[in-house]
């Protein structure tokens, strides 16, 4: 996809993610990698009505961007992830209620459902997060996201990651359900944990085989 195509693609996804409650106007952010650059939603813009021209272009290595651009407070976290994870090309920072509650609890979320084990990873951990974002915070987020597709940012919701925004949307859906289970099973006598070894096995099978079926099984 070209940069212009990606801008339009992000504007479409921004509306869809707002419709589903993963983004709220003026809260949260989304970004995509295009080659050596990153495109990211701006601060203080209505995300449900985001226009392609509103989106900010950032050089991933240097961090330089258009003069006068107003990036979101977490933009350097997005950049740091793209610098460290070549498998990730799209990110969504969501303040959805289940994410927010889990990020406030500080708990490590272990999968209570098979699909979270497959799509998010063996656990989802919480990284210490404060704004303005400093180097220590960026490193912590990258570290806690290692070998996973989502990380909680303390008191600040979740950062979901994928190969593209469609993939990242799937991570948002599955991780949101995983967080809901984690919270609500507390009132059902507690969630029953899946064997950690089986969790890792499911993740491996998903990455190596099942995730490729959409294209291959035709």
């Amino acid at each position: 996809m070209t940069i212009d195509e990606t801008r339009a693609y992000m504007a479409d996804w921004s509306k869809k993610l707002c419709d589903e409650g993963f983004l709220v106007d003026y809260q949260g952010s989304l970004s995509c990698r295009v080659g050596e650059t990153m495109l990211i939603s701006p601060r203080k813009k209505k995300l449900s009505a985001l226009k392609p021209d509103d989106i900010i272009l950032v050089d991933i290595q240097s961090g330089s961007m258009t003069t006068g651009a107003n990036p979101p407070a977490d933009f350097s976290v997005h950049r740091e992830i793209y610098r460290n994870r070549k498998d990730i090309n799209a990110l969504v920072h969501s303040f959805e209620l289940n994410f927010l509650t889990c990020s406030k609890s500080g708990k490590t979320i272990y999968p209570l459902l098979d699909d979270m084990a497959q799509i998010v990873g063996p656990t989802a951990r919480t990284a210490a997060y404060t704004e303005p974002v400093k180097n220590k915070v960026r490193s912590a987020v990258v570290k806690k996201l290692k070998k996973r597709n989502a990380v909680l940012l303390s008191d600040n919701g979740a950062l979901c990651a994928g190969n593209d925004l469609d993939d990242t949307h799937a991570v948002c859906q599955v991780f949101m359900k995983g967080c809901k289970c984690f919270i609500e099973t507390e009132f059902l006598g507690g969630g029953k944990r899946i064997n950690p070894l089986e969790t890792r096995l499911m993740r491996l099978v998903y990455l190596m085989k099942y995730s490729k079926q959409t294209v291959e099984n035709r």
Binding site: L113, K177, T185, G190
Partner: peptide, 11 residues
């Protein structure tokens, strides 16, 4: 994998 039924199933 419906949401509420899955939540009870997780417990």
């Amino acid at each position: 994998h419906q949401t509420h039924a899955s939540t009870v199933a997780a417990a």
